[in-house]
Design a protein around this nucleic acid. Structure first.
Lengths: 234, 234
DNA sequence: GCCGCGTTTTGAACAGGTTCAAAATAATCC
DNA sequence: GGATTATTTTGAACCTGTTCAAAACGCGGC
């Protein structure tokens, strides 16, 4: 997660410099927002030369990827207890979602710019990109646990793709959150309440044998969509 | 649609200059892509000074909005016949979607950058922004016609929000299309086939009286989401 | 100590988006 | 027509992300 992603850091001193730049960057992003933070400012504040920041991070955008990893890890930790103790699917999903946006909250200010760059198909920050693969896998895994640990019966076929579907759903919620200017993200929370309720109901309905044909084609669609998306890196 | 959006153009000569810059810009975008097209190149090719381009378009991104309007208009025209003659909902929706991506195709190359900027909540290009309101309304209206002109019965409550839902769906497809590198966008077309099929089935199922409770809460969710999103401009 | 070599650091230079004050041009009024 | 005002046009200057060749540093081997 917070691993060095490149072969450029060879010494301990290098690690420290890299860390210092990253800390300074995230700190400044939180304070000033992404746009208003210049690479020169980061370098100066971190006590290194401008070029040095580029030695460790290929671009300003690359600084963002560290943010992904960090908040994801925080989120995992914050969810651990809930996932260990709670058995009700609805409560589990609700908890995971609310925790997620709580984790992201300090960065709401620049989250917009973040998503902006992430939406670019050619950007390595794109959540579907190869470079994002580890975190994406990890993130989907989290939703697999949400389902697996719940006392609920779902058909095998649905079970297989449900984690991915929930991950997609969670991306949608984040997108909404980014655009949500309401106090304490009240609207996002309300949206989560409502949508989680519906999702759980839908899972129930979809599990009904009568729904098998529709379920099948929906799953097939998702499967294909998934393949397609991951095939994009060519 | 293609109306001048600012109070800065007062004379006929001004209109012409504005148009020239816009044409040159879109042309160059198509040829070179968005990133590789510099404002200096646009200005030079259009035979004006650099600053003049900024007199008519606040920023490079603002040049994109014209693209929205233009392709939307093209799409409307291309759909007119179908919507007049076809009665089957599935065929109507399928046609509108396939036509949409056909219209966008010449710009696929820079569509990524386009969406990238559009994803920024603070960008006027954001499809949910005030500045995008006219086109958005118009676009949703198109889907209202898709439904209204079909020989199909849907409950009133669903009818009210269905156009918006379909519009959201169509945004999702565009997002996929942007990321789709397959030859002749085969995957996007397949996704459209599959998803339209499911949507039509879902509409059928949701219209069942037994589904009323779930339908109600889903509609409520969408309604709120919609309000929220449009309330963002504050 | 000092040489060689890989790693890290530096800062100047470049590129392209953006701003702005001033100049040129067009429209309006007398 | 001339003066006044509004609109359009210009290009130099600025800012910030990015590149790169050269310098500095750290360290094992002698």
């Amino acid at each position: 997660m917070t691993k060095a992603r490149s072969g450029m850091v060879k010494t301990d001193k290098g690690q420290q410099t890299r860390a210092a730049i990253l800390e300074t960057a995230l700190e400044t992003f939180r304070e000033q927002g992404y746009e208003r933070t210049t690479m020169r400012a980061i370098a100066e504040r971190a006590g290194v030369a401008l070029g040095n920041a580029y030695y460790y991070f290929h671009s300003k955008e690359h600084l963002i990827q560290a943010f992904y990893g960090r908040t994801h890890q925080e989120h995992l930790d914050a969810c651990a207890a809930l996932l260990k103790n709670e058995l009700d699917l609805k409560a589990r999903l609700l908890g995971v979602m609310n925790t997620k946006i709580a984790t992201l909250e300090p960065y709401h200010r620049f989250a917009g710019k973040l998503f902006k760059t992430a939406a670019d198909p050619h950007s390595p920050l794109n959540p579907f990109s190869d470079e994002s693969d580890p975190i994406r896998k990890d993130s989907i895994q989290l939703f697999a646990e949400v389902v697996a640990g719940a006392k609920i019966k779902v058909p095998k076929d649905l079970m297989a793709d449900l984690p991915y579907m929930l991950w997609l759903y969670h991306m949608g919620i984040i997108l909404f959150w980014i655009h949500d200017p309401s106090a304490r993200r009240a609207r996002t929370h309300r949206l989560i309440d409502r949508s989680v309720d519906i999702i759980v109901k839908l899972i129930g309905i979809a599990s009904n044998p009568l729904m098998k044909p529709l379920r099948k084609s929906a799953i097939r669609l998702i499967t294909e969509l998934r393949q397609d998306v991951s095939a994009i890196a060519d």
